[in-house]
Structure formats: C-alpha cells, structure tokens
Amino acid sequence: MTGEPTTALTEAESRPNVARMYDYFLGGCHNFAADRAAAEQILGLMPDTGVAAQTNRAFLRRAVRYAAERGVRQFLDIGAGLPTQGNVHEVVRPIAPDARVVYVDNDEVAVAYARRLLPTDGRTVVAHGDLRRPDELLADPVVRANLDLTRPVAVLLIAVLHFVPDGDDPFAAVARLRDATVPGSMLALSHLTMDGAPALPAQQGKQLYQRTSAPIVPRPHAATTRFFDGYDLVEPGLTWLADWRPDGEPQSGVSHGYGGVGIRR
C-alpha cells in the first residue's frame, strides 16, 4: 500500500522528491511512483542505501534521547521531510511529555503531508521554511509561537545539509541558527559523505539525484566538522553514524554519512 492518491499528480508530485524517497528507503508508504522508481535506481547502484537510511534514523533517535535526557525540552527539526515512524515527537514523548517539537521543511508537499500525519496535541507542529534563509525561518509565526529562544533548543539537521550547495553558504546558515540560540542549546546533524565509497557508484548516484527535487552535495569529514564551529562536540565527536554513542539497539553498522552532536558554548 502506498500514499499515492487516485487523482492526477501535480508536477511536484511527479518529480522524484528526496523526502518521499527517504520515506521509501525507510519502508514507509507516503511516496509516489516517481519516488519509488528513483529510489530503486539508487538501490541498484548502492544496495545498502535502505540499510544506511535506517542507520541514520537510529542516529536521530539516539541524538534526540541524548538531548531530552539532559533537559532540553524544545526541538527544531529543519529539513524534516515526512514525519515517518520513529520521528522526533515519538522519541521524545516518553522522556519529556511536555517537550515541544517544531518540524520545518521547504517542500510544500512534504509540509502538507506532515500536517495531515502529525498528532494534534498542541506540542507538535510543522512550518514551511528553508534552512538557506534562517532569518525568515526563525521569524515564522509558527516557529515563534512554539519555541522560546531564551531557553535551550536542540536544532536537528538530519540528512539535510548535503542538499545545500556551497553557493548557498550552509555554514553561514548554521552559524545564524547557532547565534539565535542560547548557551546549552544543541546541534545534532548527519551528513552524507563519499569518504570511503566506491567512486563509480557514488558518482552515478550523485548524477541520479540531479533529477530529483534536491541534488546532493556530499562533504568530507573536515568540511562537515566546520558546521560545529561555536559548539563543543559531544564524545565521540563527528563519527560514522553507526559509531555515535551506540546504545545496544540492533543496527547494521552500515553508514553512508557522519553524525555528531554539539553543545553551544
């Protein structure tokens, strides 16, 4: 069963969308034929992509739990895509029932789906915004109404920065988000890399993403570490996703990216 409607698809729905492709990799049902076809092409080149997506989702769960267990009660998930199973609000509620979760995405289709799927509990909301325009994002009425920036916030940039090219200066955008939060706030991010990947499949996969809603920009370890300027990295630092504070939860160990958590100075 899929989330595909019976009505004619819009242009945005007929073009492979990275959020819906990720949903497909995770085994979700909120995707369209174009998304599944593109995802299957990626799997043909790199068969462990679905497993790597699960590894990324497991990192998200561990990072959110880490923040919540240390008293953070506000979560800003930028580039959230579709709130599929095991997302932030589901992870944080058993630890902090009063925590507020704000999901943000720049894709209107993803935002529309999220608004349909999210619980109406008054503490979980979604806003339309773009990481590349952090001031507009922070000024959004939904964000302002649900986050108190005078208190610590966990900013989550999970598998989103590798969709922002250097020409859009993602480092400045992350720095602006950092400066908008108070000391003790956290940054958790995961980022695709081609470090250690076979050259030909990696290049072919990158070319396939050129036809989707957001081409990819993999970055090496040194460049990804720059996003944590102004933060103290939590041990073990920026690592392969599967190696960041494993908690005994079953996982394959397959990582296509780096992950880390920093605490704002």
Rank of each mutant, 00 (worst) to 15 (best):
D169M: 10
A242M: 08
R226P: 04
F227H: 11
V101C: 09
A99M: 03
N106G: 11
A175K: 15
D169V: 06
H191C: 10
F32N: 01
L156H: 05
Q204N: 02
L192M: 13
L131F: 11
E11N: 09
E40S: 05
L200I: 15
P246R: 07
T181F: 07
R219D: 03
H256E: 05
E4G: 01
M186D: 00
A242C: 12
V164K: 03
Y24V: 03
D121E: 09
L131R: 07
L161K: 01
G262W: 05
A33N: 11
A68H: 02
D135K: 11
R115A: 10
A222D: 15
G248T: 13
Y24W: 15
G50Y: 07
Y209H: 10
W240P: 00
A110V: 10
G259L: 07
V91S: 01
P5E: 12
E40Y: 08
L187H: 04
A53Y: 05
L238N: 04
L233S: 03
G230V: 11
R133E: 14
R226I: 07
Q210W: 12
A99W: 01
P236R: 11
V174G: 00
T150C: 05
A37K: 15
Y66A: 01
A112R: 14
A172Y: 13
H89D: 08
V72K: 00
T6V: 12
A223C: 02
A38I: 07
G230K: 05
K206A: 12
H221Q: 09
H256P: 01
V18P: 00
P220R: 11
D23P: 03
N17D: 12
R115I: 04
P170H: 11
D23Q: 12
V51K: 09
L241S: 10
P152D: 07
E90K: 06
L192P: 02
T225A: 15
L161A: 02
L238R: 02
F32A: 06
L137N: 09
R219Q: 06
